[in-house]
Design a protein around this nucleic acid. Structure first.
Lengths: 250, 250
DNA sequence: GCCGATTTGTCCGTATGTATC
DNA sequence: CGATACATACGGACAAATCGG
């Protein structure tokens, strides 16, 4: 990770010319005093994050482009918290509903919880500079967070889970869609002329590998932005074609 | 990749119980007759794609969940082509505009091309079962594809690039947003009651590391879906927190 | 509460294959 | 054709986390 950050820093600061090759792996391993394996893992991270591109027999090419919007971290949503932190705006969370329930068959199918699982169901609204921007529908496994209260939910549930319960979050599966605004969206969010929202559905697993959260985040379109980087698997790998199917054609 | 696919196949077919540990790396390397490093790379791929989760001192945990929607490939857009191929629907591409232009300062800033770069500008509409679903605004570097014609664009530009020009596509940077429909969207797409679209903006690089395409794909909300998987970087790494910022809170 | 076996995380040095120029 | 570059693989070593006795 140190090498990854060192190289990333250099690329962002323009130490390596854009569109040209970085020093070869052999040069880098000498400079950093490590094995080739370690250099390669650092470079693989830069490829994943869209900073460089490698080609066998050629080298590692710098494709960094500091366009306005690409200051965000790859593969993450420019979320409520990040936006406000970046712009220094004011933010708050309000809990509209806090109840306990159990997963019936329909809910189980939608969320991925086993039928009968005891859950908390929360509706929360995030506001930024006083304007409601995100409406969250969340289901949490009750047995993973026995002491959860409305007061905690007003603050940060994740801080509670990690710092109080020492739970660690590991994996989150997300799906992004666009949906028509429903009555609840209109009631809580200031949608103005929009009649749709960006909807992020996520299933989150803790370090024991159990699904403990299902959340649907309904974002005001004007503040929603998601960045991603797709890399073609090298030729010869069986799924070479699938990983760059972002072009809506074939 | 063979090991990756073998394990993936087993997981999908239920050969390993969900929520439990896979055989240890030492067991797997004996079975597959390879080194530990190779097994680990296969497992890393499964982690990236949300099939398993690893924990030091514990093992590799199967978190596969075949809920309806998760049949799509991770990290890719369920695009026009994929949707139609999967559902067996009828699809077609129509070129509404095919012109040459050069990047002025404003276009250069938006697209990432150097000012003055000579480009093709295309507007294309993808229809599925006769219904227009996606409107593409594309800019291509003219010097990368000198023989491009409207006829080729009616078919597959990528097939032309790869099979005729032997160009290979490597990296694509994407941003997903939701935007209000404009006059062009309304003219070409059947938006019905929707007044927004899912917009995927992508910059694509060829194997020489040069940006050769900038495309804005404007998707009908009802057919848009994007899947992703976020993995927490192990503790101790400097960016541990940033990679799982999908929860719209803090 | 400590110890030891097990398991993943990290790293090294070396070797060979393959694409590029 | 050869030098150089990245791609892949092996085998070994030690660290760190987990878990049971």
């Amino acid at each position: 990770m140190q090498i990854y950050y060192a190289l990333k820093e250099r690329i962002e600061s323009g130490a390596y010319p854009v569109g040209q090759l970085l020093p070869s792996e052999n040069t880098l391993l000498e400079e950093f005093g490590c094995s080739r394996n370690t250099v390669r893992r650092a470079v693989a991270g830069l490829v994943r994050d869209g900073y460089v591109q490698t080609r066998q027999g050629w080298g590692v090419c710098n494709i960094y482009q500091p366009i306005e919007a690409s200051a965000y971290t790859m593969g993450t949503i420019e979320s409520f918290a990040e936006t406000t932190r970046r712009t220094g705006q004011d933010s708050a969370t309000q809990v509209a509903l806090f109840t306990a329930c159990a997963a019936d068959d329909d809910l189980a199918r939608r969320t991925g919880f086993a039928p009968g699982t005891e859950l908390f169901y929360l509706q929360r609204i995030h506001t930024i500079d006083g304007i409601p921007r995100i409406l969250n529908h969340s289901y949490f496994r009750r047995d993973c967070m026995p002491g959860l209260t409305k007061e905690i939910a007003e603050g940060s549930i994740y801080r509670y889970l990690e710092q109080e319960l020492h739970m660690s979050i590991v994996t989150s599966k997300r799906t992004i869609t666009v949906e028509r605004a429903d009555a609840l969206d209109r009631r809580f969010l200031t949608l103005e002329e929009y009649n749709c929202l960006a909807v992020v559905t996520s299933q989150t697993y803790n370090s024991d590998g159990i699904l403990f959260e299902y959340t649907q985040s309904r974002h005001h379109p004007s503040i929603f932005r998601f960045q991603d980087n797709a890399v073609r698997t090298p030729a010869g790998h069986a799924d070479a074609r699938k990983r760059i199917a972002n072009h809506t054609e074939l």
